[in-house]
Design a protein around this nucleic acid. Structure first.
Lengths: 344, 344
DNA sequence: TTGTAGGCGTTATCAT
DNA sequence: ATGATAACGCCTACAA
């Protein structure tokens, strides 16, 4: 495949009548190389169109300058925003990205982890799959002390760094808001209670109920995989109930929208009959009618923060504190889907 | 950073009392190595937890097993679906991905191309930026005969392979549909007419007008960057016109939705006053009310096809035909935003 | 069927 | 301030 021969530091050295060592050092801005020599080197680099060979360098340096990223699905608003933030920060710092998706399945995730390990990534950024219950499959990384940073979802405070939001508080705030609108029988639609994300949100929901002296009822918690179709299914289930709920808090905007649309089609008035709240501030939340009350948090920022922490570890500036938990901002955005008509 | 020493083929060779050459060959399933020896090698690989070092291999082999991907923005429905498809196919074939975004700017794109070149990717998959007018910045790749495959957007039939849809025909079909609904004064909202994608869609739009003997009018073409906000801006502009259009065909669902929402807020009835059509079948097209008529085409599939073609080149099975243009399926999806009320 | 030897391009060590 | 040398781990002519 390769046509012409690649220019190496030897070619430069030869033209300049210096050693390859000098060229190598000059390229790295080593202090012991004179300004004049460095200038000559850089000029020759330009002239010959030299590009350094990462493989030789990585082979020699035992590091790859590559960060592995594992997410559930690339094509969700939140995840792709996070990747975008990661990509931005990584490329700014000279790191390449190896991206793979788990399709929200532990089995795929484990395979990806192995691939990443075999590719010798310098570190890993992960948002775990729905059904990931423990972190055993990251054992190789622990053993080799390769840093792993989890973002959005987390399983353990102990061994890893996590970048998250305060899910419990956010869920509390949004549930409280629904209660303040006069709602008493609030259904909570969420994903399997494996991830802290969903456990915490459920707890926040319970906190708000408790505060308002509303009894928590098990049947008001609906579990699915938070797709739009799941939202529609949930709607048909709700419609069969003897007592319709008067509020629904879904842990994902897309699913909330699916549910809202199906209920509307069945003649339910939103927010009068049932008030709605979602989570994530996905663009669709401003398209659905009425606009969806939600929790806003910034995937792009979360990606940036996760990448910047990982890179700090890699650069040695944060070696000692490998188990931070960083909590990012998340805020309630009130829209028409949850407001009494008098407020509209 | 690295703790314990890595296992190499030499370690395996030593334990087995064979040469490293034999191990290397065994690992590659070379025909001249006996079945028995191969088995012993694989067993020892398992026992010692050997993983091959890509850097050494790449250094030696002069290829990277890495594919570069450049897209406009990661966080758009279409692009992330495409990446998802690419990632899937690439990983299945043992290729890594280097992903970067141009933010729809030629300047960023050119930088990315350079980075990719310096990273010595084996090939490139690109969806060019809005303002990319020529492919000069891919010159290094041509010179070195490194294959580049363009998807969705394309600039030239000659030097590269392109994976596209028939944009002209799709635009023709959807415009014709609007005309069949009785619309005569149809505005076309699109991106700068640099990309074939937008030129072709404009031509399709014109084709349909011509066929119906409707005069094409320059002022009915609105150019922006197709964001939701751009759609809102376009709406205010339309509202100022002496004669409101009775139909709008936008080359992107997100922008169409922004425009629809703003018009609705101003009291315009859709589809009675103005019928709407979009492009891409983004999920929001089924959320907005009325649901948006659009053109469906599959980003995931396009990504897969693009990746599979590139990989075929790389594997040598397609060397000769480096300039195919593959046209994928795209179909009209009619929804309420464009139907006369009698049809509803 | 297996082994020997050299090189891919870079950088660290030790020397000058 | 600069150089010679070895090593990173793998692959492949050539030899046996």
């Amino acid at each position: 495949m390769a046509a012409e021969k690649e220019i190496t530091i030897y070619d430069i050295a030869e033209r300049l009548n210096v050693s390859a060592t000098t060229v190598s050092r000059g390229l790295q801005d080593h202090p012991t190389i004179s300004k004049k020599t460095k200038q000559k080197i850089f000029d020759m680099v330009e002239e010959l169109g030299y590009r350094s060979n990462n493989f030789a360098r990585n082979l020699r340096n035992q590091r790859t300058n590559t960060i592995g990223v594992i997410v559930g699905k690339l094509n969700s608003h939140f995840q792709s925003a996070a990747i975008s933030g990661i990509a931005q920060h990584a490329s700014k710092n000279g790191y390449n990205l190896l991206i793979s998706q788990s399709f929200e399945l532990l089995s795929h995730e484990a395979t990806s982890v192995k691939t990443m390990f075999d590719s010798r990534v310098d570190g890993l950024l992960v948002s775990v799959a729905y059904d990931t219950e423990n972190l055993k499959h990251f054992g190789d990384f622990i053993k080799k002390k390769i840093p792993v940073v989890f973002f959005d979802r987390m399983l353990s405070q102990d061994q890893y760094t996590n970048i998250v939001i305060d899910n419990r508080k956010a869920a509390y705030k949004i549930t409280k808001h629904l209660i303040e609108q006069g709602k008493q029988n609030i259904v909570h639609i969420t994903a399997p209670l494996v991830q802290n994300v969903y456990v915490d949100r459920l707890n926040g929901y319970k906190d708000a109920l408790r505060e308002a002296s509303i009894e928590f009822r098990e049947e008001n918690v609906v579990i699915n995989t938070l797709s739009m179709a799941d939202g529609e299914l949930a709607a048909t289930e709700l419609l069969k109930r003897k007592h319709l709920p008067d509020g629904v808090f879904v842990t994902n905007d897309i699913c909330a929208v699916g549910c809202m649309l199906a209920l509307k089609q069945a003649g339910v008035k939103i927010p009068e009959d049932i008030a709605f709240a979602g989570f994530n501030n996905d663009p669709v939340s401003r398209v659905v009618e009425p606009n969806l009350t939600t929790i806003d948090y910034d995937g792009y920022e979360m990606g940036e923060v996760a990448a910047s922490h990982l890179i700090s570890y890699l650069n040695g500036s944060l070696q000692s504190s490998r188990t931070d938990t960083i909590v990012l901002r998340a805020e309630l955005i009130v829209r028409a889907s949850s407001l009494r008509s008098t407020q509209l």
